[in-house]
Simulated scan of single mutants.
Amino acid sequence: MAIKVLIVDDSAVMRGMLAEIINSAPDLHVVGLAPDPIVAREMIKTHNPDVLTLDIEMPKMDGLDFLARLMRLRPMPVVMISSLTKRGSEATLQALELGAVDFLPKPKLDSSGGLEHYRVEICEKVRAAYGARPRVPAKSAASPKPLLRETSEASGGIASGLPERVLQDKLVLIGASTGGTEAIKEVLCSLPGQMPGILMVQHMPEMFTASFAKRLDGLCRLRVKEAEHGEKVVPGTVYLAPGHSHLSVRRGVGGYVCELAQSEPVNRHRPAVDVLFNSAASQVRGNALGVILTGMGKDGAQGLLAMKHAGAWTIGQDQESCVVYGMPREAAAIGALDDVAPLKEIGPRVLARLRNLERRGPQT
């Protein structure tokens, strides 16, 4: 039976394009086209769709307001269709906080070159949303207050209990995709400010990673930024792969260094989790801790296995807490995981493992 999709967008041209793309897949069927949330509300009652695609900027009711009400009254899988602007990226992150499963930038109407890739991607995202576990947010949709960032002078490392050697020698590598923005936020907010450097890949377009890094930087104790080519990795800082480049790590004379490359996509992604994890297997080896979180597909599984074979410790998010149990499932299936845990326990287990590694001494 086909997955029923309702498209909500104020542009008739965009509604028609999305409908044509989605209806081209034999397992997907558009049951309605709504120009605004008011019409969408009635169509939801009439057609009982399985998945909703939702624009953000619309007349009569803003897409975020509609999403917040929808997730309170009738939670369902929602894929946001966002504009490629700074305002659009920030609103998309708010939508993911409110419970949207995933998002996709609007296609360029004047360009057919990338339309086939867009066709594949939106159909995959709708299918993943249909099988996803929608995250119903808490009654208060407000973001938590920014935490006081710890500095080495203020905390002296007391918050994490990790000595300078561990902070300098170890690295934490994180990979995520669908549902990963909120999962990463929960993991990072559970960690103290005194941590080894953290490098991570979240599948996101170029216009969205800067806003995501900025949002995380204001919420957690750790400093969060987009990675830059050639910059040194320092403790207490999280480096997010920019949406235009693969991120890898290299061991330099004075420590670890970030490297960016706009080479071909891997597993159809750039940035790709496998690129980061494979570099850690080669350069960091037993001093690495690998984390794979919720996401569609299998990106990161083979890289995590390479890390494990190189002596790294690895952990994956469990099925129950994943929005989409794809990437962690693939990692588990090939034996790449040392540990599996609910999302709320990932951060504490990483910290506990770092303390255990400190007692065991340096890894080579």
Rank of each mutant, 00 (worst) to 15 (best):
R223K: 15
R223S: 14
R223N: 14
R223W: 06
R223C: 12
R223T: 15
R223M: 12
V224P: 08
V224Q: 12
V224G: 09
V224I: 13
V224R: 11
K225Q: 15
K225G: 04
A227H: 05
A227G: 12
A227F: 05
E228N: 07
E228W: 02
E228Q: 15
E228S: 13
E228T: 12
H229W: 08
H229S: 14
H229Q: 07
G230L: 11
G230K: 10
G230H: 11
E231S: 11
E231Q: 15
K232L: 15
K232F: 11
K232Y: 07
V233E: 11
V233Y: 12
V233Q: 12
V233P: 11
V234W: 02
V234Y: 04
G236V: 08
T237F: 03
T237Y: 01
V238T: 11
V238E: 05
Y239K: 09
Y239Q: 08
Y239S: 06
L240P: 02
L240H: 03
L240T: 07
A241R: 03
P242V: 05
P242D: 06
P242Y: 04
P242N: 06
G243R: 09
G243P: 10
H244A: 09
H244Q: 10
H244D: 14
S245Q: 05
S245V: 01
S245F: 01
H246A: 08
H246C: 06
L247T: 03
S248K: 14
V249N: 03
V249I: 14
V249L: 10
V249T: 08
R251G: 00
G252D: 13
G252N: 08
G252H: 10
G252Q: 04
V253W: 00
V253E: 13
V253A: 11
V253M: 08
G254R: 01
G254K: 00
Y256P: 01
Y256M: 03
V257P: 01
V257K: 00
V257E: 04
V257A: 01
C258E: 00
C258K: 00
C258M: 06
